[in-house]
């Protein structure tokens, strides 16, 4: 008997990753879309609110106490100063949530991935589909945030639109890394370790103040952290003053994405096939 399903899967034999990949990650996206359409979308849509609230509260409230900030590009308002950091941070948080807790939940609690993998989908379809969904969501949040930042008059150049792809790169880096680490997690208690790492990174990566308040060695450590790299990347993209340094930030994330995807793929069996 050769059914449609069988023909389709046979057609992929000998092609890239036929062991793990059916070439259909878009079906995982479709599933998320169907689920999203009928869900309490207010909870999803409002996801971009958090950085906006921080921007309003800190930018204008603390901004009044701080005055303007001197940057290489000249004096800017405190709100304009923190906007890219908030965008990078929310890209990180969203990506981490999607690639760690949500993956863990769908794997162990709702067993959604069990159902997907009982079909002719491969683990790589699932991983790519989930990452793509997270990035699309992150991209939409980033766009909303950037539009608000622009509407508040905090950007001065059309280059600021580049903040959107920059935020997506940041999200991609964290999502692929998060998934790789999740593949090593055995219980949901271990998942809390992410947060022990994420909170200090958020507080010290200089989203709210220049790193110069720290001693030199402290700055060096912080600059090696992914969130700091993300903040620099988004800041440079949003201001339109990239310089050669933006290549360092981008390379950092390319490495992070590749390493993350490498380990995720390597551990796919461990991740999805207990």
């Amino acid at each position: 008997m050769t059914t449609e399903a069988v023909q389709l899967s046979e057609r992929r034999l000998g092609k890239f990753g036929d062991k793990y990949f059916a070439g259909r990650p878009q079906q995982v996206l479709l599933r998320n879309w169907i689920s999203f359409k009928s869900s309490a979308w207010i909870a999803v849509v409002s996801g971009f609110l958090e950085p906006v609230l921080y921007l309003l509260s800190f930018g204008y409230g603390i901004g009044e106490l701080v005055g303007s900030i001197a940057t290489p590009g000249g004096e800017i308002s405190y709100a304009a100063y923190i906007a890219p950091g908030l965008l990078a941070t929310s890209a990180m948080n969203g990506a981490m949530l999607d690639s760690t807790w949500n993956v863990f939940f769908k794997l162990n609690e709702s067993r959604l991935y069990n159902a997907m993998l009982a079909t002719s989908l491969g683990p790589l379809d699932v991983a790519l589909g989930e990452i793509a969904w997270a990035l699309m969501r992150g991209g939409i949040y980033a766009t909303a945030f950037t539009v608000i930042v622009a509407a508040l008059g905090l950007v001065t150049t059309w280059w600021a639109l580049l903040a959107i792809p920059a935020a997506i790169i940041v999200a991609f880096g964290f999502a692929s890394f998060g998934m790789a680490i999740t593949s090593y997690m055995k219980s949901h208690h271990q998942m809390n370790f992410f947060y022990i790492f994420l909170l200090p990174m958020f507080l010290f990566s200089g989203a709210f103040y220049p790193l110069t308040v720290f001693p030199g060695w402290g700055q060096a450590i912080i600059k090696a952290l992914p969130l700091r790299q993300g903040i620099e990347l988004v800041t440079r993209a949003m201001s339109g003053e990239f310089g050669i340094h933006i290549l360092v930030n981008i390379s950092y994330f390319m490495v992070m994405i590749c390493v993350g995807l490498f380990f995720t793929t390597k551990r796919l069996n461990a991740l999805f096939m207990k």
């Binding site: 603390i62 507080l203 200089g206 308040v213």
Partner: peptide
């Protein structure tokens, strides 16, 4: 501790 060092001292130094 984290909040005090980060916001208190970091943002504090600006203010």
């Amino acid at each position: 501790t984290l909040y005090l060092v980060s916001i208190g001292i970091g943002v504090g130094s600006l203010i």
